[in-house]
């Protein structure tokens, strides 16, 4: 679809998944749920055209699982495996690198690129204190024109204070009574619904309420 200015809008979206050891017991569920999200996007051309998706997993290191793609043109998703520690810093650094590459590529295709959206999904606290803070600062530096919106979803042992600190838009933590399985599924369904709503409005349209989660107030300094 072409906008009057000549290029279609595109929302680069990064699903950043914690695949550390604590997620091992949910590995199959994580893969199955991702597959369902993929099915949902693959079937909706208006959504996959607007919201291009990249999947990044992180544990001791960070990997690009799915490069930035129009999901409607992808035949399959790779499998995720869990293990290792929870190093947020590696993830933040890789996201920044990918954003630079992906935004450049999308613009070269004539797309009008919106500010990227990072959906950061974790079940634990960072284990690389002293590193992740500076990497996050670089990723979200206001003087970097491509700095993304960061939306965080935490469950299990995720640290609420950290979630609040690494969110620029919204932060959600699973309610204590909600099982980790249900929380994981809910988060990924929320990601799918967010992309559907965003495609309808052609802008990032975030949920305000997620069943089983409570929003964490974010502090803004200016």
């Amino acid at each position: 679809m072409t906008s009057p200015a000549g290029g279609a809008r595109c929302l680069p979206t990064y699903a950043v998944l914690d695949t550390s050891k604590s997620m091992s017991r949910f590995q199959q569920l994580l893969n199955d749920t991702l597959e369902n999200v993929y099915d949902g996007l693959w079937a909706k051309p208006a959504v996959s055209e607007f919201a291009h998706l990249s999947i990044i997993s992180f544990n001791t290191d960070a990997h690009v699982i799915l490069p930035m793609s129009d999901i409607g043109k992808i035949d399959s998703l790779p499998m995720l495996a869990c293990g290792g520690s929870t190093n947020y810093g590696k993830a933040f650094r890789l996201i920044a690198t990918q954003i630079d590459k992906d935004v450049t590529a999308l613009r070269a295709q004539g797309r009008k690129v919106l500010r990227p959206a990072v959906f950061f999904i974790t079940d634990g606290a960072p284990q690389d204190a002293g590193v992740w803070e500076s990497e996050f600062a670089k990723l979200t530096a206001p003087d970097w024109p491509r700095h993304p919106h960061v939306i965080t979803f935490g469950f299990g042992d995720a640290n609420e204070a950290v979630l609040r600190r690494i969110s620029t838009k919204s932060a959600f933590k699973a309610e204590p009574g909600v099982s980790q399985q249900d929380a994981l599924v809910k988060v990924l369904v929320t990601l799918l619904n967010t992309l559907i709503n965003s495609a309808n409005s052609q802008n990032l349209a975030l949920p305000t309420d997620i069943e089983g989660f409570r929003p964490i107030p974010i502090e803004f300094v200016d």
């Binding site: 072409t2 009057p4 000549g6 290029g7 695949t19 050891k21 997993s57 544990n59 001791t60 290191d61 990997h63 690009v64 699982i65 799915l66 490069p67 930035m68 793609s69 129009d70 043109k73 992808i74 790779p78 499998m79 995720l80 495996a81 869990c82 293990g83 290792g84 520690s85 590529a105 295709q109 004539g110 797309r111």
Partner: peptide
């Protein structure tokens, strides 16, 4: 004991037809 890696990694990025022409 080593950091987990994805078992399958895409090797190529998909691209789509695009046009930068004005209507």
């Amino acid at each position: 004991g080593q950091p987990a890696r994805p078992t399958i990694r895409p090797t190529a990025r998909p691209t789509g037809q695009a046009s930068s022409r004005l209507p």
